[in-house]
Design a protein around this nucleic acid. Structure first.
Length: 488
RNA sequence: CGGGGCGUAGCGCAGUCCGGUUAGCGCACCUGGUUUGGGACCAGGGGGUCGCAGGUUCGAAUCCUGCCGCCCCGACCA
């Protein structure tokens, strides 16, 4: 599968857009760059959201909600933040409409101009730190571990469904700590949470690493990232966790009294993942037949298709099976539609990526079996109805593991160690994927590579062993390999 | 903002070069019948400001001018 997609990577966008559309995940909207997330696409996001939310709570976080609008002046307070951000933003300038005196519908009421413009949040650090100032006085108020689920707007020039949209849904955690060490530990903890979520639930292997100074979040001292590899050989940044040092605390004057009665600035982190993960999920597992969903995130894990139609006898058996599956915590849909033929339904559920399909007809009833079809391998087997719930439960686990292993293999086959710049360029052009190489640590070299090859420094992996080598460009000494790739 | 492509029924498209019946095809939709274990078939039917505006012409989906919108590749991007 992966091979075929790589071979026609020029049409990769087409393939991706088709799946988004045909699986019923999202539509373009009337507003350029914004998408309508359809019920099925949103159901996948909800599964992700619920799981992540549970993981955040397990690690001691609580949810809150902060305003959509940010006074423009807030964005001027943190110099680096302003430098790296604040450009592609939607700005609210007026607060009232009026009937057009010329009779052309409604127009902006010029008398309703805001004294200070409001920015539709591209991220919420500033308004949250403005609020935290009032919430934090003592070390006893710390740590403050808050997350919010929200929408943000970034006026991107070029958009793609889920991967980059002008408005997107995400969560952003913003925490405050008494010490640098504690904040750093928090940033690393959430980095781990994201990596665990990606691998265990999305079945998507990720490289955990830190960003170079150049790629770091504006205002952060350290940015941790999880980088995934898509089937067309391009990298996707799937989540980030930032150690913000005391930058935002200084900008918003957030201080606390420590246990020695000394005033200090608090230490901060922020971390987020977005609906981009839905795009990552699509691009990691899908094939020519459509979407492939890992069972742990599939809104419907098993669909029962009565063959040829939902007749009473078949239906009552289907309901028995449904009950047995539900008892094992498996989500099931019985297809009650009697206007479509089985073949049509098979194709449709494959397009939608439903992990397991049970085909149930008279022939099966006579033999007390059911036809089990798995989406990942397209294999079909006739299975006894005796203990079917256990069979399916095991199968769902198998599928989850198989998808992860396939993705691991793909990544292994598309990760190349190179030791000179010529090979680097050649591999990038002919094969794509992750390129592991030595780099001298300078922004200058990083930018040179980006300019000449369009590959970016994805991350400096945290788990790789030290290894002495020479920078592929300058020949300067390097103590560990880093990951370059073309990226989304 | 550059480079390329496209705009014709709900969706996907042909027709445009070379102007000429009543603008066509597939899917979907409606009616009837036969079907039903991998996207059914037959018959009948409904649905169109040919992106918008202007021009040329006896006559424009087709030629000319201007505008608008969408898609892809870049620039941009946590």
């Amino acid at each position: 599968m992966a091979k075929e997609i790589t071979e026609r990577s020029e049409n990769y966008s087409q393939w991706y857009n088709d799946i988004v559309k045909k699986a019923g995940l999202a539509d373009n909207s009337a507003v350029r760059g914004c998408m309508v997330i359809k019920p099925y696409g949103f159901a996948i996001w909800e599964k992700m959201r619920d799981q992540l939310d549970a993981m955040f709570k397990e690690t001691g976080h609580v949810n809150a909600y902060f305003p959509l609008f940010i006074p423009k002046s807030f964005l001027s307070k943190e110099a680096q933040h302003v430098e790296g951000f604040a450009k592609e933003c939607a700005v609210v300038t007026h607060h009232r409409l009026m009937n057009d005196p010329q009779g052309n519908g409604v127009v902006v009421d010029p008398t309703a101009k805001l004294e200070e413009e409001l920015i539709v949040r591209p991220t919420s650090e500033t308004i949250i730190w403005h609020t935290y100032k009032d919430w934090i006085q003592s070390y006893r108020d710390l740590p403050l571990l808050i997350n919010q689920w929200a929408n943000v707007v970034r006026w991107e020039m070029r958009t793609r469904p889920f991967l980059r949209t002008a408005e997107f849904l995400w969560q952003e955690g913003h925490t405050a700590h008494a010490t640098s060490d504690e904040a750093m530990a928090e940033a690393r903890l959430m980095h781990d949470v994201y990596a665990r979520f990606a691998e265990e639930f999305m079945a998507m292997p990720v490289i955990k690493g830190s960003k170079s100074a150049n790629e770091r979040f504006a205002g952060a001292m350290e940015t941790y990232t999880i980088e995934a590899l898509m089937q067309d050989g391009k990298a996707l940044q799937a989540g980030t966790s930032h150690f913000l040092g005391q930058n935002f605390a200084r900008a918003f004057e957030v201080t606390f009294m420590n246990d020695k009665n000394e005033e200090e600035f608090v230490w901060a982190t922020s971390w987020g993942v977005s609906t981009r993960l839905v795009g990552a999920l699509i691009m990691t597992h899908s094939d020519d037949e459509g979407l492939v969903l890992p069972p742990k995130l599939a809104p419907i894990q098993v669909v029962i298709v009565p063959i040829p139609k939902p007749e009473p006898e078949i239906l009552s058996k289907a309901k028995e099976i449904e009950k047995a599956l539900i008892s094992r915590g498996i989500s099931v849909k019985i297809d009650m539609d009697d206007t479509k033929r089985p073949g049509f339904k098979f194709a449709e559920y494959e397009m939608k990526g439903i992990p397991v399909r049970l085909g149930l007809g008279k022939r099966d009833l006579e033999n007390n079996v059911v036809e089990v079809a798995r989406r990942d391998t397209k294999e079909k087997t006739s299975v006894s109805l005796e203990g079917i719930e256990n069979y399916v439960a095991t199968l769902l686990d198998d599928i989850q593991n198989n998808l992860f292993n396939k993705a691991i293999d793909f990544r292994a086959n598309h990760t190349t160690e190179v030791n000179d710049y010529e090979t680097f360029k050649k591999v990038l052009e002919e094969k794509g994927g992750f390129i592991s190489c030595h780099w001298d640590g300078s922004t200058e070299t990083e930018l040179k590579i980006k300019e000449e090859t369009r590959a970016t420094l994805r991350c400096i992996p945290v788990d790789t062993p030290e290894e002495n080598g020479k920078c592929i460009v300058t020949g300067a000494p390097s103590s560990r390999r880093v990951i370059f790739a073309k990226a989304y």
